[in-house]
């Protein structure tokens, strides 16, 4: 494992949005096939990390580097990053009226794989993944996220991940807003996704999803940094003792 080149290596990453520093020195290494969970309070900068990784134009890297498969990607456009094998499942996917899910999926898969996929083959693959995520056929002719429920949006995000088969899938609060049934289905999708070929960076506020998706590493995110890293037992400890426990542990004098 250690001999392999990491999929992602973030070093001392500082990022600002509209002049305000959000990420303040993030360090993170993810090796192929690993499942990492980043946990933290709302506003701790978790989503900024996911947007920065994917290359949102409003997020400015002021310092540090993002190496993806050993290559700096900080200056690449989102589509260039996607083509290198990075994908992001959005916390709040936007609606694109008038564009059907099926057209979009095909265009996207074609763009990322860099070649045409025969219609029949694509259909088959799609049906298989849709069955797994308990997505109905009529989904395909609907417009992207237009009038979708929260659960439907998240399923579509995971469906896209399973089709794009990225080397690293960043899942941004994929569990938020899901009832327990939907959470189970989406977790099944994530577990299918998590293979030797696909590493996962799961960003979440709650421990709940980690009952279904077992991370190899858990990181606690606070004030724009990873402040603590452990195995999956760390998430349980967090669930029990809350984020304040980490804060206190880091500042023994009790001054937060």
């Amino acid at each position: 494992m250690a001999a392999l080149q990491p999929i992602l290596k973030i070093e001392d990453l500082w990022v600002s949005v509209e002049g305000k520093d959000i990420l303040k020195g993030v360090n993170l290494t993810i090796n192929p096939g690993e499942v990492h969970a980043i946990m933290g309070r709302n506003g701790s900068g978790k989503s900024t990390l996911s947007y920065t990784l994917m290359g949102h134009p409003r997020y400015h890297i002021n310092r540090g580097s993002i190496l993806f498969k050993g290559e700096e990607i900080g200056d690449l456009t989102p589509d260039e990053r996607a083509k290198k094998g990075l994908a992001l499942a959005f916390q709040y996917p936007v609606a694109i009226p008038g564009v059907s899910v099926s057209n979009f999926l095909r265009a996207s898969v074609k763009a990322v794989r860099g070649k045409e996929i025969p219609v029949k083959e694509f259909r088959q693959e799609l049906k298989q993944q849709m069955a797994l995520l308990e997505v109905k056929d009529e989904f395909l002719s609907r417009y992207i996220n237009d009038g979708f429920s929260g659960g439907e949006k998240k399923r579509l995000e995971i469906l896209q991940m399973t089709l794009l088969k990225p080397a690293l899938a960043v899942l941004d609060e994929t569990d938020s807003g899901l009832d327990i049934d939907a959470l189970k289905v989406v977790s099944t999708g994530i577990n299918t996704l998590a293979t030797k070929e696909t590493a996962i960076l799961l960003i979440t506020h709650y421990q709940r999803i980690l009952n279904y998706v077992k991370p190899d590493f858990v990181h606690v995110f606070q004030s724009g940094q990873i402040v603590k890293t452990g195995g999956s037992e760390l998430s349980e400890e967090l669930e029990e003792r809350g984020y304040d426990w980490v804060t206190q542990e880091l500042t023994p004098s009790g001054v937060a």
Partner: peptide, 30 residues
């Protein structure tokens, strides 16, 4: 054309031009 719409489509591998065309085609779909 929303920055977020463009970002979403581009994060799926579409170039900026392709993403814009897709949004525009969607707008004209009716």
């Amino acid at each position: 054309v929303g920055e977020e719409q463009l970002f979403y489509l581009m994060s799926r591998g579409l170039t900026e031009a392709e993403a814009k065309a897709m949004i525009v085609n969607g707008f004209f779909e009716p």
